[in-house]
Design a protein around this nucleic acid. Sequence first.
DNA 1: CAGCATCCTACCTGATACTG
DNA 2: CAGTATCAGGTAGGATGCTG
Lengths: 135, 135
Amino acid sequence: MRPPLPADMFDEVCPSSLNPIRFGDKWAALVIRCLEHGPRRFSELRVPLHRVTPKVLTRSLRSLERDGLIRRTAQPPRVEYELTPVGRSLLEPIAVACAWTDRHWDALLDARESYDAAARRATGRIASPSAGSRA
Amino acid sequence: MRPPLPADMFDEVCPSSLNPIRFGDKWAALVIRCLEHGPRRFSELRVPLHRVTPKVLTRSLRSLERDGLIRRTAQPPRVEYELTPVGRSLLEPIAVACAWTDRHWDALLDARESYDAAARRATGRIASPSAGSRA
DNA sequence: CAGCATCCTACCTGATACTG
DNA sequence: CAGTATCAGGTAGGATGCTG
């Protein structure tokens, strides 16, 4: 049998609003990568995605299913999710996005920091929300 | 001089919430593509992006600037926006995303339609928001 | 020309608690 | 196990009108 998904599969700053590249909703790309090596059950997905609530994960899964990117099969009490061919084809753009992020993540962090610092100097300390987590 | 940006540069269903791949906010990818061949002024951008209000376009530009993806230069009354090297590097993932969308757009449309149709049959006609526009 | 101010709506996301 | 229900906050997007 395939190994279970590791709880630390994703960085704790992941997903991130800082990452300009997004696939579907906040968790969609992570879900797709979880399904890369075969079908997974709801509770299996919750291990690496331990920071998402069941409600939100359900909505993300429904949305992916609606778009034909994953398929849900229920033979109670088992429910499994797997990639469709179209969903699997998203792995390539996702990989490209990840590669881009790896190369430019630090530049992005620096740019934001100096922009916000300049804005603070100009306005006398206003706003500037905290950085998010990673994709 | 470079030709002005055509008003019909983007499809009228573009950007789209249907497209699962997004770059920054709703208009960011379009802005970046507008800047591909050199700097553009605010009002130049408004031609192909005629469906975005000035407020929203401004916010999108500020956000891209904050992330170091574009650079804003003002020598009044001229204001120009141009891609930074990091911003330009996004053109490649964007192209990959566009290629993916071209290949799978129809499948996405069909999947949503049949999912919503099945949902209507199951629940007796509830919900199902209209499709969005394209990315 | 290149925005800003104001108001408003919808959606996304999450916390918490509960269930067939 | 695989969700659903409820409540609440924050942000994105847009309409409209005004300005240095």
